[in-house]
Design a protein around this nucleic acid. Structure first.
Length: 107
DNA sequence: GCATTGACCCGTC
DNA sequence: TGACGGGCCAATG
């Protein structure tokens, strides 16, 4: 068993996020088996692979990342491009509606 | 190997 | 009702 680092696990999970779906940092951390490591997920998101769809990852409020390259407006544009409705004022998406789980991806 | 950072989360004032 | 701080963990320099 290759003991993958958190970075590897988070990256692998983010890559599996289908288009038009989003996940929360706390959710990802919980799936990895550590709901307290949400902060670590955010850290990996910044120092991890920039090619990954981090725009599909939002905080538990469904809000965009303030530290996202280009700013929240860019993050919002990327999310909207996925077909996700985002509030242009609060920069929040309906996390309860677009939340995606890696378990088979049941709609 | 130590100290700091970071795109978070929760509880409390 | 809104704002503030502390705590958790991992990766970086």
């Amino acid at each position: 068993m290759p003991e993958l680092t958190f970075k590897q696990q988070v990256e692998a999970l983010v890559r599996k996020i289908p288009r038009g779906r989003v996940m929360t940092y706390g959710q990802i951390a919980a799936i990895l088996g550590a709901p307290r490591k949400a902060q670590a997920v955010g850290f990996v998101a910044h120092y991890g692979d920039p090619e990954l769809p981090w725009h599909r990852v939002v905080n538990r409020h469904g809000r965009m990342a303030p530290g996202y390259p280009g700013g929240m407006p860019t993050h919002r544009a990327e999310v909207e491009a996925e077909g996700i409705a985002v509030d242009p004022k609060e920069f929040t998406c309906d996390v309860e509606r677009y939340r995606w789980w890696p378990k088979g991806g049941r709609s």
